[in-house]
């Protein structure tokens, strides 16, 4: 995935995360202050009934799930970023290349090999 795509995804995920977190907080109130008010008023507020109703519970559940999923998405993203980092590593020409062979020494060694193994002197 391109950097741009990753950034966009990050944006989206954080957006969902904050959204679901705020929603979760909103729906998680047990509406105490409303209970202190008039009961009749509570019935007229669809919001508060929703909060205490099953749909409110479901919302809490759904938001929790979304929160978890968002975080998992983030983790997956970090994984893919790391993979990208690892897989796109290219050895640097100058720094990583092998030290230049000492050809003289090598040929010397090879000569020595011949002498030792075969026992002949060139």
């Amino acid at each position: 995935m391109s950097n741009r795509g990753l950034l966009e995804q990050l944006e989206r995920t954080t957006e969902t995360l904050s959204h679901s977190l705020s929603n979760l907080i909103k729906y998680s109130s047990v509406a105490k202050e409303r209970d202190d008010e008039d009961d009749g008023e509570q019935h007229e507020l669809p919001e508060s009934t929703a909060k205490n109703s099953t749909s409110g519970l479901m919302m809490v559940n759904a938001q929790t799930g979304q929160l978890i999923k968002g975080i998992q998405d983030l983790l997956v993203m970090t994984r893919s970023i790391r993979e990208k980092w690892l897989l796109t590593q290219i050895p640097d020409e100058g720094v990583d290349s092998q030290p230049e062979l000492d050809y003289e020494k090598c040929s010397q060694l090879l000569k020595q090999w011949t002498q030792e193994v075969v026992g002949s002197e060139e």
Partner: peptide
């Protein structure tokens, strides 16, 4: 109910 759901969450 709410409490329970919150607890579950």
């Amino acid at each position: 109910w709410k409490q329970r759901s919150l607890e579950e969450s």
